[in-house]
Computed example of a mutant assay.
Amino acid sequence: MKILKSTVLVLALLMVSLTFAQNKNERASLEVDGVCLMCKKRIEKASLNTKGVKSATWDVETHELKLIFDERKTNLETITKSIVAVGHDTKELKAIDAAYETVHPCCKYRDEEVNDDHKN
């Protein structure tokens, strides 16, 4: 009987610890500049290539990037650096000119004429 009680106690503690250990996913969103579906693909790919990012969805209309990531493996600063490295500005960081110049001409979101073309 004593062994049964000990076994039940150990199993209960194990289940409780596993429940707490599983929820390390953080949800967050960032504003990321871009204008088109090519931008969407580039922004999402840069985010997903960051170790620990499980989901990344960027909205062309709102410029909102919704993220789910493992906070044990990465953070928003690291994800933001990955995005600016491929040429897209965020509110927190701006892409350097060399990175911005690598985006396709139709993706030059800093150019008013390109922005106007995408609005029509």
Score class of each variant (00 low, 15 high):
residue 5 K to Y: 12
residue 12 A to F: 15
residue 10 V to H: 05
residue 11 L to W: 13
residue 25 N to L: 12
residue 49 N to T: 04
residue 76 L to V: 14
residue 86 V to Q: 06
residue 31 E to L: 13
residue 12 A to I: 15
residue 104 H to S: 11
residue 94 K to C: 07
residue 75 N to T: 08
residue 44 E to Q: 11
residue 27 R to H: 15
residue 63 H to W: 01
residue 49 N to I: 03
residue 67 L to K: 06
residue 105 P to D: 12
residue 56 A to M: 03
residue 68 I to P: 01
residue 19 T to E: 02
residue 45 K to W: 00
residue 64 E to R: 10
residue 70 D to Q: 02
residue 45 K to C: 05
residue 112 E to I: 12
residue 22 Q to D: 02
residue 23 N to G: 10
residue 21 A to H: 09
residue 64 E to M: 11
residue 94 K to F: 11
residue 16 V to K: 04
residue 110 R to I: 08
residue 49 N to G: 12
residue 78 T to E: 10
residue 71 E to Y: 14
residue 12 A to D: 03
residue 18 L to Q: 08
residue 73 K to G: 01
residue 54 K to W: 01
residue 38 M to P: 00
residue 96 I to K: 14
residue 91 K to M: 10
residue 45 K to R: 12
residue 22 Q to R: 10
residue 64 E to D: 11
residue 58 W to D: 02
residue 33 D to M: 14
residue 52 G to S: 01
residue 50 T to P: 07
residue 37 L to T: 12
residue 95 A to M: 06
residue 102 T to R: 15
residue 86 V to H: 04
residue 26 E to Y: 15
residue 61 E to T: 04
residue 112 E to Y: 05
residue 21 A to W: 14
residue 85 A to R: 05
residue 115 N to L: 08
residue 52 G to R: 04
residue 114 V to E: 02
residue 32 V to E: 02
residue 51 K to S: 11
residue 17 S to I: 14
residue 110 R to P: 04
residue 35 V to Q: 03
residue 86 V to T: 11
